[in-house]
């Protein structure tokens, strides 16, 4: 067979198809994605991280944190809670509606509002409840909750979506969970000092932690005339010898600031979730 040209053409076409499909097409679909408005505020999501946290992302990259930590919360579905808040003026209609919805209720229940009508039902049930209750004039609310193992572990309020990563460079989604997912570590551990202690001696904050300590991000030095205000307050078992203090380097401070800024739980159109927090505080930059 002397079909060198055909072989070349065939592989060229096959490979360029893949390039168009998985490199070009994502650009066309997502390359111009805009920031999302946060409901009830004039803020947009995601905001740029504060300067120190942006520097911390580079420390995160340089230390290869992505080797063990993912930054993507997975969501397998969503469930709905329907809460009856007020009866309104037409109690009979509400009672009929509740009967139609097959809610198990007693007249006494209606005096103790707000009351859960449904918890953890699917969209169809929540939708039926809304359509049945609306004409009665009763006041009710429907909350959306994400589900899935990650959510139940408390790793986030909703699954991560493309909009969460618009301000970061590089985007380090991670593919391994030898350590926990960090997409929302700033919500779980908002304390910078917790992170500094954890980086210096992981077992000092998480008993039995398998994470390697990052002592090289800290300086152990003799206490000067006055102890440094930045020195870590470590439990005795992890404290340096007497007369010494552990002071974080700029890299450690930046990394901790970055970790605290990881809060990807703002409700979005494509990832709806009802949060107890005011929306703006979840999107706010790190303290």
């Amino acid at each position: 067979m002397k079909h060198g040209a055909y072989i070349f053409l065939a592989s060229f076409l096959a490979l360029s198809a893949s390039w168009c499909g998985l490199v070009l097409a994502p650009q066309l679909q997502l390359g111009r994605q805009t920031l999302s408005p946060i409901t009830g505020t004039t803020d947009q999501y995601p905001q740029r991280r504060p300067g120190l946290a942006e520097a911390g992302l580079q420390v995160y990259r340089a230390q290869g944190c992505v080797t063990c930590h993912s930054q993507q919360t997975r969501q397998t579905g969503a469930v709905f809670d329907v809460v009856l808040n007020e009866l309104g003026t037409n109690e009979t209609a509400v009672a009929l509606a509740l009967a139609a919805l097959k809610v198990d209720w007693k007249p006494a229940d209606l005096q103790a509002l707000p009351r859960d009508l449904f918890r953890g039902v699917d969209f169809a049930a929540a939708d039926a409840a809304e359509r049945t209750l609306k004409p009665t004039g009763a006041k009710f609310s429907i909350a959306v909750r994400a589900t899935g193992p990650d959510i139940e572990r408390g790793w986030g309020l909703r699954g991560s979506v493309a909009a969460d990563y618009l301000q970061d460079q590089p985007v380090l989604l991670g593919a391994q969970r030898l350590g926990p997912d960090l997409a929302n570590i700033g919500l779980r551990q908002p304390d910078v000092n917790w992170h500094l202690n954890h980086l210096y001696a992981p077992a000092s904050t998480v008993q039995g932690s398998t994470m390697p300590p990052y002592r090289f991000l800290f300086e152990v030095r003799p206490v000067g005339l006055q102890p440094s205000p930045a020195a870590l307050k470590l439990p005795p078992a992890f404290a340096p010898p007497a007369g010494y203090e552990v002071v974080p380097t700029d890299d450690a401070l930046a990394l901790a600031a970055y970790l605290v800024s990881l809060r990807a739980s703002v409700p979005l159109f494509e990832a709806p979730v009802t949060v107890a927090l005011p929306a703006s505080s979840a999107a706010a930059p790190a303290p």
Partner: peptide, 18 residues
């Protein structure tokens, strides 16, 4: 031993594995 190379940045897991 998690702290085996804790004082050497270039030997830390996130660098030596990549």
């Amino acid at each position: 031993k998690p702290d085996i190379f804790a004082d050497h940045a270039w030997l830390s897991y996130g660098r030596i594995l990549p």
